[in-house]
Amino acid sequence: MSDPLSCPEFFQNPYPFYDELRAAAPVQQVNTGSGGRPGYLVTGYAEAKAAFTEPGLSKNTARFFAGRSSGRNLHPAVARTMLATDPPEHTRLRRLVTKAFTTGAVTRLRPYIRHTADRLLDALPKNGEADLVAGLAIPLPVTVICQMLGVPEADRAQVRTWSSDLFAAGEPQRIDTASHAVAGYMTDLIKAKRRAPDDSLLYDLIAAREDGEQLGEDELVSLAVLLLVAGHETTTNFIGNAVLALLQHPELLDRARTQPGQVSSMLHELLRYDSPVGIATFRYTTQPVTLGETEIPAGVPVLISPGAANRDPVQYPTPGCPDAERDARGHLAFGHGIHRCLGAPLALAETEIALRVLLTRFPALRLAVAAEELRWRRTRLMRGLESLPVFTG
């Protein structure tokens, strides 16, 4: 069985592959990339939305891989995060952190986000060439989530490197090494917070109780790692992809420049058009499941692709053309159901502020290279640029 999701062309532009797969069948068998293990890929919008809430799909990877030797050395804090749990465990863990990412909590963060964006853009040349991934898309969400968790400023560049390594497709040793490094770092940081309590989200989790029960040490480290990584990886890609979409579509760029109040309403269409998550995290069937017209047997992996679903022409006519007038709020870029990204309000706020400040500061912003020369990260999970060279003036 061929694996269309692992060829170099897929990482550069997955959408022709998604279109071809969806046209053949919105749910079909493919290699999952786990040692050639066959599974099913969901590319249709209706089928993907149903899959996100299908009770016969589990995220409990520990149960799925129990007794199987993968030859991997992934740290348990990375392998068994909240994303790899089902209710009631998932419900308990999620409840402990949800309050930090509510709309109200994010609103209180907006001045800090704006200050950080201003400071980062101060460092860019007023009339020259810059890389907006390195200069804005990476450091803005990294700085915000590290500030929330209480990660010292001197450690943030190293934390970002480990996080990026965790998504290195086809490099299992690099991923495994990074998993131990970041888990070890968060273990030490938790010890430091216990010795010197502060007002960080990390210390809130240390002190948090749910029904009178504190988080276990392994749970605490795992949750800290998840928040650290998930708290910026998706937003980094969202910012980069959104800026590129604007620069490639002059009518959208003109609207964003001349009507900055419209940026907020454009965000969901930008998410739909080029989702920062290409393929959602691992699920498997605990019983036979029917998605669309496809029956999937029990005990096999299922990959749901928000990137493909958001380009389904049945749901979104002319999906390859971003439309500022389209109501795209039903997109699946943040997932759907109980596992929907709890950091969505923060990602939206960071990207809105980044775009508004960027286009105000640099109204003549334009690409410094041809779009086909841009390089994309080699990861099936994420869809994001390695760099975004622009002329600022």
Results as ranks from 00 to 15, higher is better:
Leu5Ser: 03
Gln12Gly: 12
Pro14Phe: 06
Tyr15Asn: 05
Tyr15Cys: 06
Pro16Trp: 03
Glu20Arg: 15
Ala24Tyr: 02
Ala24His: 13
Gln28Met: 10
Leu41Asp: 13
Leu41Pro: 06
Ala46Leu: 02
Ala50Trp: 03
Phe52Asp: 06
Gly56Ala: 08
Lys59Arg: 15
Arg63Ile: 08
Phe65Gly: 00
Ala66Ile: 03
His75Arg: 15
Leu83Ala: 11
Thr85Tyr: 01
Leu93Ala: 03
Val97Cys: 06
Phe101His: 10
Pro111Arg: 05
Asp122Val: 08
Ala130Arg: 07
Leu136Asp: 02
Cys146Arg: 05
Met148Gln: 15
Leu149Ala: 11
Gly150Trp: 04
Val151His: 04
Glu153Phe: 12
Ala154Ile: 05
Ala168Leu: 12
Arg174Gln: 12
Thr177Cys: 12
Ser179Cys: 05
Val182Arg: 13
Val182Tyr: 00
Ala183Gly: 10
Gly184Leu: 01
Asp188Cys: 10
Asp188His: 14
Lys193Tyr: 11
Arg194Leu: 06
Asp204Arg: 14
Ala208Cys: 11
Gln214Ile: 04
Gly216Tyr: 01
Leu223Ala: 06
Leu223Thr: 11
Ala224Pro: 04
Thr235Gln: 07
Asn241Leu: 08
Ala242Asp: 12
Leu246Lys: 10
Leu252Glu: 07
Leu252Ala: 02
Arg255Trp: 03
Ser264Gly: 12
His268Trp: 12
Tyr273Ala: 01
Asp274Trp: 04
Ile279Met: 10
Ile279Phe: 04
Ala280Trp: 04
Arg283Val: 06
Pro288His: 09
Pro288Asn: 13
Thr290Ser: 13
Ile304Phe: 10
Pro306Phe: 03
Asn310Leu: 08
Asp312Ile: 09
Val314Ala: 11
Tyr316Cys: 02
Asp323Lys: 03
Arg329Glu: 04
Ala333Tyr: 04
Gly335Ala: 04
His339Asp: 02
Gly343His: 06
Ala349Asp: 10
Glu352His: 14
Arg356Val: 14
Ala364Leu: 10
Leu365Tyr: 03
Leu367Pro: 03
Leu367Arg: 09
Ala368Glu: 07
Glu372Gly: 00
Met382Arg: 13
Arg383His: 14
Glu386Val: 14
Pro389Trp: 08
Phe391Leu: 14
